[in-house]
Design a protein around this nucleic acid. Structure first.
Length: 482
RNA sequence: GCCCCCGUAGCCAAGCCUGGCAAGGCAUCGGACUUUUAAUCCGCAGAUCGUGGGUUCGAAUCCCACCGGGGGCACCA
């Protein structure tokens, strides 16, 4: 005879709860279907009423299914009634509806699949302590519906993005995470050590320079969707490891990247939520193309309430004008900054967070864009834009700088800043310059923050809610060396 | 790194301001109940009040330090 609490080595469910609801949802109350089904999942609720027992099984299919167990027909009825909330159970029997109209599987056979030896959180209140929710995500996923939904949204969004890129003939690649030189962004890296080579490596802060090497190598449309690491502070919008889509398209410029951002964002939203409408900070936004395009000088001028210049050397009247505006807006500036640099500072400190979007803020000052090509019409600017939604930067893109000599000059400027104490200034990457010297065609490049996109799609207020296991201080006494 | 807030049983929590036996609910355990829906009813049990120190006749409560988390600032995407 079967010991129903003896854990089997395998179990074969025939249907999910969602499938049963779809197939038998129209049964009349009190009616039996004559169809046998086997389901498996976690027992989330249990109602024992004398010679009848009702259980609510959650199999993560999006719906729950009731287990209906009358004592007269359920093998080992007492054992079934004593199952704990949180136990994994497999049960088979006829699909039916109870008198109250609840679709159920009448338990003809059942097995315990895993015992919940720790009690599950309160069935009604769930988990409130964010610390516990993040550390014990395996419990949170069961008891907090928004948690499971966030990761379903995340999966649907990334799948949609991959599908869109495949449809456009992009090749997905994987480039190194361990970099001898941290490059492609202005950020402080994590440092690690390789024992056999006896040298330090940096966890990548961006895959940018490797991906452009691949365009040189003959992959004209290439992308990587993966984790990058930045050794900076944590906040509701910043995680030390986060996911970025970076892509490069030969023969394209930054206007092509704008179209791509619009189309990828809208496709991700539609796939994940069924709509391009999102709600952020109580306001309703639509990610459907086209998005507004404005220059940085335009959006800052709108914020300031008067026309402001976009460029000018540090000693120009334009720079003096902007410095006065910065003072008025209580934005700190440094001597020697050009007009564009001051404009960018005002934008980042005061304007960006006020922009609802979705919109593209175009044409950044050249000096804060060391990998972007200079603007084809305006001196002192780069062909670069940020995509802004709900006051946050969603993506960053530019027409790539392809000339190796100019790139060397830009690196030299970064090195100069680095010597001046800017720990986030870029380091010269000689191999990257060598690659450029073999010839990089005109190329558009894009970085899109996947975590932030998912936050928008599911209304998350903190990035931790869209990361399964967010970075936390290690728990005391939870293993390791302690 | 700085500032503010939080930490009471497996879970949700009252009590803290104004010091005096640590409420209540869910879950667990025992009992009743043959169509429940957070089932209901009766009963039992469960607490180093985050940790350590201090003040006090007496500390969950007041003070200090530390640990963990959250928010803000700074840094960044």
């Amino acid at each position: 005879m079967t010991d129903r609490r003896d854990i089997p080595y395998r179990f074969e469910p025939t249907d999910t709860a969602a499938q049963l609801h779809a197939a038998h949802g129209d049964l009349a109350a009190g009616e039996s279907s004559g169809v046998q089904a086997t389901v498996a999942g976690r027992l989330m609720l249990r109602r024992v009423q004398g010679r009848l027992c009702f259980g609510t099984l959650d199999d993560a299919s999006g719906e729950r299914i009731q287990l209906f167990a009358p004592a007269a027909a359920t093998p080992d009825y007492e054992e079934f009634c004593s199952l704990s909330i949180g136990d994994w159970v497999g049960a088979g029997g006829e699909v039916m509806k109870t008198r109250r109209g609840e679709l159920s599987v009448q338990v003809g056979d059942w097995r315990l699949l895993a015992e919940a030896r720790r009690p599950f959180p309160d069935k009604w209140h769930g988990m409130a302590d964010t610390d516990t929710r993040y550390r014990q995500r395996y419990v949170d996923l069961w008891v907090t519906p928004a948690t499971r939904r966030a990761f379903e949204v995340r999966s649907a969004a990334t799948a949609a993005i991959r599908a869109e890129l495949a449809a456009r003939d992009f090749t997905e690649v994987e480039t190194p995470m361990l970099h001898p030189i941290p490059g492609g962004a202005a950020a402080r890296p994590f440092i690690t050590h390789h024992n056999a080579l006896d040298c330090d490596f940096y966890l990548r802060i961006a895959p940018e320079l490797y991906l452009k090497r691949l365009v040189v190598g003959g992959l004209p449309r290439v992308y990587e969707l993966g984790r990058i690491f930045r050794n900076e502070g944590l906040s509701p919008r910043h995680s030390p490891e986060f996911t970025m889509l970076e892509l490069y398209q030969a023969y394209a410029d930054y206007t092509d990247m704008m179209v791509l951002v619009e189309e990828l964002s809208a496709a991700a939203a539609a796939a994940a939520t069924g709509s391009t409408q999102i709600t952020a900070d109580g306001a309703s936004l639509d990610l459907a193309p086209p998005w507004r395009r404005a220059t940085m000088a335009e959006v800052v001028s709108e914020f300031a309430g008067r026309e402001l210049p976009a460029t000018g050397t540090p000693d120009s009247p334009a720079a003096a004008d902007l410095r006065g505006e910065a003072d008025r807006l209580e934005v700190a500036t440094e001597a020697g900054w050009s007009a564009g640099r001051i404009l960018a500072e005002i934008y980042e400190r005061r304007v960006e967070s006020e922009l609802q979007g979705p919109l593209f803020v175009c044409d950044f000052p050249l000096e804060v864009s060391p990998l972007a090509r200079r603007h084809r019409h305006v001196d002192g600017l780069a062909e670069r834009f940020e995509a802004v939604v709900a006051g946050r930067e969603l993506g960053n893109a530019f027409t790539e700088l392809t000339d190796p000599d100019e790139q060397r000059t830009r690196f030299a400027h970064q090195e100069h800043r680095r010597r001046g104490g800017d720990s986030e200034a870029m380091v010269t990457d000689e191999d990257y310059l060598r690659a450029l010297s073999y010839g990089l065609p005109p190329t558009g490049g894009l970085g899109l923050g996947i975590d932030r996109l998912v936050m928008l799609l599911c209304g998350a207020e903190t990035i931790r809610d869209v990361v399964l296991f967010p970075t936390l201080r290690p728990e005391a006494g939870a293993g390791g060396d302690s």
